[in-house]
Amino acid sequence: MKHRRWLVPTLYILFLMLPVYWLLNMSFKTTNEILGGFSWFPADFTVDSYVKILTDPTWYMGYVNSIIYVVLNTVISVSFALPAAYAFSRYRFLGDKHLFFWLLTNRMAPPAVFALPFLQLYSAMGLFDTHLAVALSHCLFNIPLAVWILEGFISGVPREIDETAYLDGYSFPRFFTKIFMPLIGSGIGVTAFFCFMFSWVELLLAKTLTSVEAKPIAAVMTRTASTSGYELGLLAAAGVLTIVPGAIVIYFVRNYIAKGFAMGRV
């Protein structure tokens, strides 16, 4: 049995990677080959799908739009969650524990429920089809998440460090930016990653609140039906490119992610 130890993890990874491989496989095939039958490797290897996506503005602007609202959302979420998390960690006030738990319950409702009120509100305020609209709507689930993760990291820093800084003469803003934020840098990184990821994969609100100017990549992908049917190769290539930003961000925070999970807040 001992020398078969590798078997289970290998099978696990194989099954895990199969859909990803298949997506990659498809993206290098022509649509005809995809529809033609089963093949493990592209017989007629082509990068046409990628070339089309990266040269056609209607395609690549989808990525640009997505990235704009995701980054915007990450910045808003982290900068609002940071002071909130600090307050939850350091101060006692009436109903603090209830409020903290209530934040979590915000994540219990499916975002779809809020699609209609957001659509109506943003249309009325002239925010419809802007990057800000999507970024703000994603705060609905990202700010509570960010507060939860950050609170865990902040509570890991002894309160005495804050006090020592005040005794040393630091004002609160100076202490917060010079001493405290570097201290929980990894926490901020992990939080930013999760905000990025959840905003990146959210489709329903993003599609509902945009039409042309801020159309996300997922919405672009649904509009590839043509007279010749779906362009499957193109869709697969778009899918592969959708995975890429997440993979890049994961690479940068890989060492801190485990810590974020270990805090039990994700």
């Binding site: 002894p158 005495e160 460090i161 020592t164 800084a165 001493i179 570097p182 201290l183």
Partner: peptide, 9 residues
């Protein structure tokens, strides 16, 4: 303090 409190960064 009794605990060793410094600025870790």
């Amino acid at each position: 303090y009794q605990q060793f409190i410094n600025y870790p960064t």
